[in-house]
């Protein structure tokens, strides 16, 4: 028999899930990123027209999501390194809170910079 959601609903599992999902989504995004850079090989005009396309508000908002994903994945990774290499016990859940706060702060900073 297998566990269901009830067994998994606790902060550290959510931290795992966010780390995993952000990692997968970033992996999916990476080819798109390389494709965008590759436009430069087709000449300056191609790249310029693509960059102008990214100036649309909806794309800008999507970029905030991307920044949050990157920040969440980074903060989650730092949390894991701290769990594995530092002495810890009671503050494991504080680490999750710090990681969440950091990633949201990065996203907010990026969003405010856009406005």
């Amino acid at each position: 028999m297998r566990n269901d959601f009830r067994a998994r609903n606790h902060p550290a599992y959510w931290a795992f899930a966010v780390h995993r999902v952000s990692g997968v989504l970033l992996t999916v995004f990476l080819p798109l990123h390389f494709w965008a850079l590759a436009q430069a090989l087709q000449g300056e005009a191609r790249l310029e027209s693509f960059l102008r396309w990214t100036d649309q508000p909806l794309v800008k908002i999507a970029e905030v999501g991307l920044v949050v994903l990157l920040a969440a994945h980074m903060a989650g990774g730092v949390r894991l390194l701290m769990l594995e290499f530092l002495a810890w016990r009671e503050w494991q859940k504080t680490l999750i809170a710090v990681a969440t706060a950091l990633s949201l702060a990065f996203g907010l900073a990026f969003l405010l910079n856009l406005l």
Binding site: R8, Y13, F16, L80, E84
Partner: peptide, 9 residues
Amino acid sequence: CHTQMTCTE
């Protein structure tokens, strides 16, 4: 181990 920490929980 994926550090889900359900064991610790």
